[in-house]
């Protein structure tokens, strides 16, 4: 399984034609204490670069963009009861949703682990 990153601080685990999406540890650190996550409904068609979810910290609401185009097939129900999972385990238990990947060419331009780390170091 390969993990990719966007410059909007989302991570994507690609397994076959299905991608699991979440926000990175860097992103949760910037947002601070997360109190609510609004996830897309299962069956929603999301489009690369367009709003897919909203994450609310104490201070502000932030959009999470779809890193790829496709259909949402599963969402992390655990975030409803415990949105702070995004803070405590952003890149594992705090995943947001799973989606089909309709166009793999959209993977181009995503960063691997190393590239993302140097991207963050440059911020």
């Amino acid at each position: 399984m390969a993990r990719y990153f966007t410059d909007e601080h989302e991570w994507i685990d690609l397994e076959g034609d299905t991608a699991t999406v979440g926000i990175t540890d860097y992103a949760q650190g910037q947002l601070g204490d997360i109190v609510f996550v609004e996830l897309p409904e299962i069956g929603t068609m999301v489009e690369k670069g367009k709003d897919a979810a909203v994450v609310e910290s104490v201070k502000a609401a932030s959009d999470v963009y779809a890193p790829l185009s496709g259909e949402v097939v599963e969402v992390n129900d655990g975030l409803e009861d415990d949105p702070a999972l995004v803070n405590s385990s952003p890149e594992e238990d705090g995943w947001f949703f799973k989606m089909t990947v309709s166009d793999k060419s959209e993977m181009e331009g995503l960063m691997d682990d190393k590239a993302y780390k140097s991207f963050c170091d440059g911020l």
Binding site: E8, H9, L31, V55, A60, S62, V64
Partner: peptide, 8 residues
């Protein structure tokens, strides 16, 4: 992600 910072 885009953060709307709620400051002046």
């Amino acid at each position: 992600m885009s953060e709307e910072i709620d400051t002046d």
